[in-house]
Amino acid sequence: MNMTKPAVEARQLVKRYGEITAVVGVDLTIQPNSIYALLGPNGAGKTTTISMLTTLIQPTEGSATIAGYDVVKQADQVRRQIGVTFQETVLDDALTGRQVMTYHGRLYGMSKAQRQTKTDELLALVELDDAADRAVRTYSGGMKRRLELARGLMTDPKVLFLDEPTLGLDPQNRAKIWDYIQDLKRRNGLTLLLTTHYMDEAQQLADCVGIIDGGRIIAEGAPRNLIDQMGSDAITVSGYGNRDGFLSRIDELPFVQSVTTAETITQLAVDSGNRRLAEVVTLANQSDFTIEDISVAKPSLADVFLKYTGRELRDH
């Protein structure tokens, strides 16, 4: 038995808004000093789950603890343990970057000396030291995101929640944010819970990924393990004609480990993609199924998502 308390623990969290159930029953255990990614499409319940864990809203049912503190009964202690960045940018445009940091520190009762040290250190970390004394309204989207990340770290949180930290950022800024996130875990022993609908983000960053859809976690594990379930190669086929006939025959082939169908595409987990491609094409021809597009790839989290939900997770 590991005696250290989980950084985050949720038991059957439910959130209902009238008739609508946004979160159906989320169980979550996040070990200290790890990065956990909640991966799912928009509306899957990611933000609602984070809002409950960060004490913004109260769960309808179930319970959750952060570093051992209950998010409802000990909300104030929880708030002292966490840093949060929200999905939308919530910065006061009229303030300078330095003021944003300072007022945040003051809200948490940090001393002036602490605030100064921390502000300098963090603004340097996110490479905003040159822009520190400019009004936030002059910042680019990427700079604002980095400032929010720095603000979330201002109070030395044990657990940092990042809701879609790279939403709307260009690739260069995304890569930067990823670097900071990985760096933080190494340096500070921080636990991070982030939500994303970017597959590559979850795959790159997370020690553990929870795939969330329809308000519940439908698969969970290390990205590598989740992907390994998918066979060693994935063949993705789309086309028209007698798809059902094609599917029934392909299922019988010994090298096909699993078949996943979504609206228009079919995905086959196979032992070796390049070698099997020709056989798949032949079989399609024999079944009067015309292939428009076929590709072989190493499976990714996108394929895991497809397998569990029968839907593609599109990057918006």
Partner: peptide
């Protein structure tokens, strides 16, 4: 409306 209030609401105040 802009959600700035959330910064206050997750703070121990």
């Amino acid at each position: 409306m802009r959600g700035i209030v959330k910064e206050y609401l997750v703070a121990p105040i």
